[in-house]
Design a protein around this nucleic acid. Sequence first.
DNA 1: AAGCTTCCCAACCGCAAGTAA
DNA 2: CTTACTTGCGGTTGGGAAGCT
Length: 201
Amino acid sequence: MGRSPCCEKAHTNKGAWTKEEDERLIAHIRVHGEGCWRSLPKADGLLRCGKSCRLRWINYLRPDLKRGNFSRDEEDLIIKLHSLLGNKWSLIAARLPGRTDNEIKNYWNTHIRRKLLSRGLDPAKHRPLATAVKEAGRRAREPSRPDLNLELCISPPYQEEQKKPAELGENMLGEKEGKCGGEFLRLGGGGLLDCRSLEGS
DNA sequence: AAGCTTCCCAACCGCAAGTAA
DNA sequence: CTTACTTGCGGTTGGGAAGCT
């Protein structure tokens, strides 16, 4: 695959976005919609590379973003999804409306990961650290095998076209607010981690 | 109050995948 | 089929805020 620099670095701003830049970006997307990130800055006179514009919009400016603290249910769901999907933050985010992959990744690294470690659990495998180490050794001796096809057991991600949870008084799992996504994930409480079990650590 | 440390999150970087020419 | 370009993803980092001494 060919690769090229995403932008002419000499002519672009870096670092924190100013209010004016935000407003320009929002105005542009209101008129033209999302997409064509590469040509967006040029079209709108923004001294930012397209990548940066896309990131700013997705992670911060999008109107449907929830922001604020993660609820216990969200945290629980993240742990469950992570145990199935691993570090596939975009897939996890697709199942948490209003949350971005970046936000979830940050939350995982700063909160959940630490909680799991302090309980002696391997955040990568969701198993006790000693077991995880043993298993790593055993796997090294075994022939490699493909991962489970998770798409088979996880329902499609939340999509904007679907009925909005707020309108239904339900979350994206089709459940009343306040429940985790066990059924949605076909987990059925099969012994996976529950964030509540980490409380008080 | 000042200096230091830790925490958190927005943003950057590099790579891979997708796709148009 | 190959190349060039764009988009999206995951890992990492910089710096401001908050907490501590």
